[in-house]
Design a protein around this nucleic acid. Structure first.
Lengths: 210, 210
DNA sequence: TATTATATTAACCACATGGTTAAACCAAAT
DNA sequence: ATTTGGTTTAACCATGTGGTTAATATAATA
């Protein structure tokens, strides 16, 4: 009598997490309704507490998943043989497209970045440091080497990465801003993102490549 | 019998708005408690409804104020005789310092940018377009001219501004991210911001100035 | 002073929400 | 067939929350 769970078990848990992610992203932690999550997963509300014991715990689980996905995307990219030129050319595209495909992840991350930095710190740290300290993190070490080789103009690898991520993420956050100012609704997302990617790559390469 | 209000009237309203701004910033719209706002303004909860009729309306008022302040800061800066070099050198500093001084404003703006873009669009539009359409907005016109004069490398004034704002705002959002990854708590904000400003100015000038 | 319009409060209310419970359900093991 | 242990549900519950109300206080006017 060990792991012979009902076939529905896993499915259910997964369905809950999906629905929770959507709800939390749409309304933020406080605005999210357990009832709505249950409805979204087409199960009884009590199941949420059966599997996750509390709203807070459910949220933490979702948050952890979000950061795993977001940093996973970065990690997957880094693994290859990288040059600064390649990083600055490809990363924005990959990241902006990833963001555009998973707006919920960004919403949750940014919300917590702003309202519960301690939460974020904990979740991020756990994921990023999975056996790797920041001083020996391959990407950061790589960036430092690039600088000492005179290939890039930004000495601090953290600021180097922040510049890239800032410009990429803001493509998403800034869209409504652009729409508001210009008074024009961006009808064609593809066009908008293509243009945004071009602009970001341009400023990054000119700005940080030597 | 026209404007002979009690002296406390204005004070009270102002106190409410201040407290509301704080509470909304700290907990987001859904998480904010009317009771807490009242306590923060040291008045009875009923006063909130007396002056602002509903939570939603109070929020709108706060939001409007937030955007006025944020865009006011930009407007104040633009009014002088600008060169692209000066803009890219001074704007990040002014903006990042403004943001650091008023984190609540950023929290509210970013929250709405992400969760209620329609809200933002409305509020922003009302403020930005106050008699000025985006096609004739002095700053955007200026940027366009710079491009046709070959002074900058970004043709679209909206993307030009987005790049600047993205890097500036992210200084604030990204701080906890840096802390999480590096595992080091930023003890000295002044040092952090100084370094951030330098990095942003560097990438902007190298990246968009010809 | 009496009147009038606004400002302020304590007590209240309807309702939504996170969380619980007790009972039923269902598949596998004996 | 019966037991066993995880799974699922309908019905509840305590509490918190946005919003109301009726009564009172306050200042300006006439």
């Amino acid at each position: 009598m060990v792991g012979y769970m009902k076939k529905n078990n896993l499915e259910t848990k997964e369905r809950i997490l999906l629905a929770a992610q959507k709800e939390f992203a749409a309304r933020g932690y406080a605005g999210a309704r357990m009832e709505a999550i249950a409805r979204g997963a087409t199960i009884n509300k009590a199941m949420l507490f059966y599997y996750f014991s509390s709203k807070d715990n459910l949220y933490r689980t979702v948050l952890f998943g979000v950061f795993s996905e977001i940093f996973g995307e970065i990690g997957r990219f880094v693994s290859r043989q990288l040059t600064p030129g390649l990083l600055l050319e490809k990363f924005p595209e990959i990241y902006i497209r990833f963001i555009a495909r998973h707006p919920d992840l960004v919403r949750i991350m940014v919300f917590d970045l702003i309202h519960n930095p301690e939460n974020v710190t904990a979740a991020m740290a756990e994921i990023v440091h999975e056996k790797i300290s920041y001083k020996t993190h391959p990407l950061l070490v790589l960036i430092k080497r690039w600088y000492s080789q005179g290939l890039i103009s930004e000495a601090d690898p953290l600021h180097f990465m922040m510049n890239i991520i800032a410009l990429s993420i803001f493509s998403f956050v800034g869209k409504p801003m652009v729409e508001a100012i210009s008074g024009i609704t961006v009808e064609n997302n593809e066009d908008f993102y293509r243009k945004r990617i071009a602009s970001v790559v341009n400023i990054l390469q000119r700005g940080m490549l030597k």
